[in-house]
Design a binder for these strands. Structure first.
Length: 474
RNA sequence: GGCGGGUUGGCGGAGAGGUUACGCAGCGGAUUGCAAAUCCGUGAAGACCGGUUCGAUUCCGGUACCCGCCUCCA
């Protein structure tokens, strides 16, 4: 059995991973709040934890891993978006518009993350389907003295949980000292956070013992992980920006509601994404979504390949140069597999030991990519294909499709190659290479790679191959 | 102000207390009608200052700079 070691941000140490139940390894990752298209930063945890999912499935068996990633579909930003639509004259009730918005966003999210080669998690619960469980958990917290109701709100009593701040390495007193938040009058303590808040008639709401209202942020993840994974599970993941307050609050809620359990054993946090060396933000104008990239012609596998090039625990810088490099590297891989590989044989292979070992070492994806390259350099093309699939970069289906496209382009280019060979033959005798060069220029403009050697002429479809531009070439 | 992370060759980016990372780019050569592709070869690093050590880029301390979080942003 492969030994997996993971950096646990709770203990700040790389530890050997020992599942609670090897027959059912349980992972929870914070998913998106579905109010808009996923931006590129949202994609990083998806790729990181998809890679973890693939590793765990390989090591423990595909049927022995439960991966939960939620959709937070109750949120004031969603309400605001829906309200803006309504004010802009959209038909339907606010509730309809909210439902429409979340449905649409979830569909987009699936489309975009599918394009990145991310497997669908085992469960993708929606917060609105677990409001009952949230209310139950909040009730238990009040009963246990960890929460209190006031003015229609229910607040978590941070001082009731001695461990509060441990996950993120903060002390409650320090945070209060440096706090910049305005303290609501109904809070016993400035750090107390909202579990439930009242909704007026214009907002979505659920009946509760504290009146009609809606859950605060944080409680949905505690309720859904409990419902789907139990009070103790193996790994909890998300972006480092969620470590505080979101994850800290989750720990507080879950551990106080279930003091007998340990909640998440291992916490994994991915570092942030930057763009050309800067934080991605709307104000800097370098903000873009996954869809923007896909539409610009940067395919999902290129995005994934670039992501895997940097360890998840490090800030990742997205640059156009990296994307271009990844693209040409992947083209090389596809060419090698197409020319020398056999996909049917590849499908019977196991993932490469070196690559599995790299992933098992706290998801050292960069080392895995180096190993991938080594497979290419040592002529192990079937292994190359197998591991491209394993890593989720290019699935067998995608490889097949790209090889097909390549093959048909090669067919198309055959007569041109013959033609060019003849012209070159003639030019060798006359020493007039002008027509050959003209033809070559035309082919290059159509994105064709032109290779001429003693052995003959070879034409290959390059990255920007455009069959339409062949028109008019002899 | 509090907390956390980082600083490796031209660029990207790893591991390891003492032996080439690797990729891209560069340079030299082979090859080519010219190229492309390919192959062979090759230079180049560890922010700064101290400490531990026979030996540190790798451990410890400090300095500088950068980044993130503390605001329902992954």
């Amino acid at each position: 059995m492969v030994t997996i070691r993971l950096h646990n941000s709770r203990t700040r140490v790389k530890e050997e991973f020992v599942p609670i139940d090897p027959g059912n390894v349980r992972v929870y990752v914070c998913g998106p709040t579905v109010y808009d298209r996923a931006h590129l930063g949202n994609a990083r945890p998806v790729v990181v934890f998809d890679t973890l999912f693939r590793l765990l499935r390989h090591v423990y068996g595909a049927g022995h891993v439960t991966y939960v990633r939620n959709f937070t579909d109750v949120d004031d930003k969603i309400n605001a978006t829906a309200l803006a639509r309504k004010e802009a004259g959209a038909a339907g009730s606010l509730e309809d518009l909210i439902a429409e918005r979340t449905e649409e966003t979830i569909r987009w999210y699936h489309d975009d993350m599918d394009a990145l080669g991310a497997l669908r998690p085992t469960h993708e619960p929606r917060a609105t389907a677990y409001v009952g469980q949230m209310i139950a958990m909040i009730g238990a917290l009040i009963e246990g003295g960890h929460a209190y109701a006031k003015e229609g709100h229910v607040l978590f009593r941070v001082r009731s949980f001695a461990e509060y701040g441990r996950l993120s390495g903060r002390s409650v007193d320090d945070m209060i000292a440096g706090a910049r938040v305005e303290v609501a009058p109904f809070k016993e303590d400035p750090m107390d956070f909202v579990l439930w808040k009242p909704s007026d008639d214009s907002l979505p709401g659920w009946e509760s013992p504290w009146g009609r209202g809606r859950p605060g942020w944080h409680i949905e993840c505690s309720a859904m992980s409990l419902a789907l994974l139990g009070a103790s599970f193996d790994i909890h993941g998300g972006g480092i920006d969620l470590q505080f307050p979101h994850h800290e609050n989750e720990v507080a809620q879950s551990c106080c509601a279930h003091p007998e359990a340990e909640f998440a054993r291992v916490w994994m946090h991915n570092e942030m994404l930057q763009v050309e060396g800067k934080k991605m933000s709307k104000s800097l104008g370098n903000f873009f979504t996954v869809r923007d990239l896909l539409e610009k012609g940067v395919p999902g596998e290129v995005i994934r390949f670039v992501f895997l090039g940097t360890h998840y625990g490090r800030p990742m810088d997205w640059t156009a140069e990296k994307a271009a490099g990844a693209s040409s590297k992947l083209d090389d891989f596809v060419r090698l597999v197409a020319q020398f590989g056999n996909l049917e044989k590849a499908k019977d292979l196991q993932p490469d030991d070196v690559i599995v070992a790299a992933l098992a070492d706290d998801l050292n994806t960069h080392a895995a990519l180096v190993a991938l390259e080594n497979l290419a350099n040592t002529a192990r093309y079937d292994d190359l294909a197998r591991n491209l699939d394993f890593l989720g970069i290019l699935s067998f289906a995608q490889l097949e499709q790209r090889i097909e496209v390549r093959d048909s382009a090669m067919q198309l280019l055959k007569p041109y190659a013959a033609n060019l060979a003849a012209m070159r033959e003639a030019a060798m005798a006359t020493k007039d290479f002008a027509p050959v060069d003209a033809m070559k220029a035309g082919l290059l403009a159509a994105g064709v790679e032109v290779r001429m050697s003693k052995a003959g002429v070879e034409l290959l479809p390059g990255p920007g191959f455009d069959a339409a531009k062949l028109e008019g070439l002899v």
